[in-house]
Design a protein around this nucleic acid. Structure first.
Lengths: 139, 139
DNA sequence: TTATTAGTCTATCTTTTTTATAGGTTTTAT
DNA sequence: ATAAAACCTATAAAAAAGATAGACTAATAA
């Protein structure tokens, strides 16, 4: 399961994407709208900013905004940033690989093979679906 | 990522599957073979037994054994038992569903829709692949 | 029938991760 | 100047993960 942090991030990003034309959006507005602790959300948005996904403006009239159009922000990127590996096992992770401590040879490990396929099937979706694809439907 | 518990369970089950013809297998043998803490493994095997996946025999000549042939034990079952939900979000979990606290209506939530697809693609593999499919390749 | 073997059960403990909060600092618009 | 709002760092509380301990029970063999 994705952590609350990542879940909150997605909801916040959706709100920002749905209001791209309104200039910087307040943390407090997002927090209220999406029912998220404001202080926790603050940390999350900051992390997204430091990763170059969000921009911000301080002072009156400030807030957060997307640095790129929603269709250019892949879901996989957000997950990896806040949650780490998408794969179910360290030994099949593309970005956070770790050697398996429990098997002799990954090259012939059937678990490794199957979990690699699960990873691929998840990535096929998560690398291609973007913020744009998770905006509210039918609206 | 799967917990160590689930990872250990898979490796242990593979060992049991690869030795089905040798009668009950000792916890200690599995622990040594797969490099797992024996006491931790003890708890895991017990849980698998209580779930009806393994059987056991006490005393000399005792040990653990599979209750069904490897090809009848789906990977999804093991994951759900020891790790819980396979889905990335509570609101798309089939077995551990929880209402989303951060969106107004799941029926029109795009995140819900995409994560549902990720779940389906993972389940398509994990429900159909069994212990038999994760035995050591080329042997 | 006793000693040994091996799983059973329950509790606890340690460490890590997750989730959340607190409070001061800096920047910007008016 | 003042107020608004993000920035930053630290810490704390809670939960989960990972691991260990030890007494108990059942089966087997001598």
């Amino acid at each position: 399961m994705l952590s609350k942090k990542t879940q909150y991030a997605f909801h916040a990003l959706v709100h920002l994407a749905e209001n791209v034309d309104k200039g910087p959006i307040l943390i407090s507005e997002i927090a209220q709208e999406k029912n998220i602790s404001i202080k926790f959300l603050e940390n999350i948005l900051l992390e997204l900013k430091n990763a170059g996904i969000l921009g911000s403006k301080k002072g009156k009239g400030g807030g957060y905004y997307l640095m790129r159009p929603p269709k250019e922000i892949a879901l996989a990127k957000i997950i990896r940033l806040l949650d780490g590996p998408i794969a179910l096992l360290p030994c099949v992770s593309l970005n956070y690989y770790e050697r398996c401590e429990n098997c002799r040879d990954e090259a012939v490990c059937g678990l490794n093979e199957v979990m690699g396929k699960v990873r691929d099937s998840a990535l096929k979706i998560l690398e291609n679906k973007t913020l744009k694809d998770i905006l509210t439907r039918n609206s």
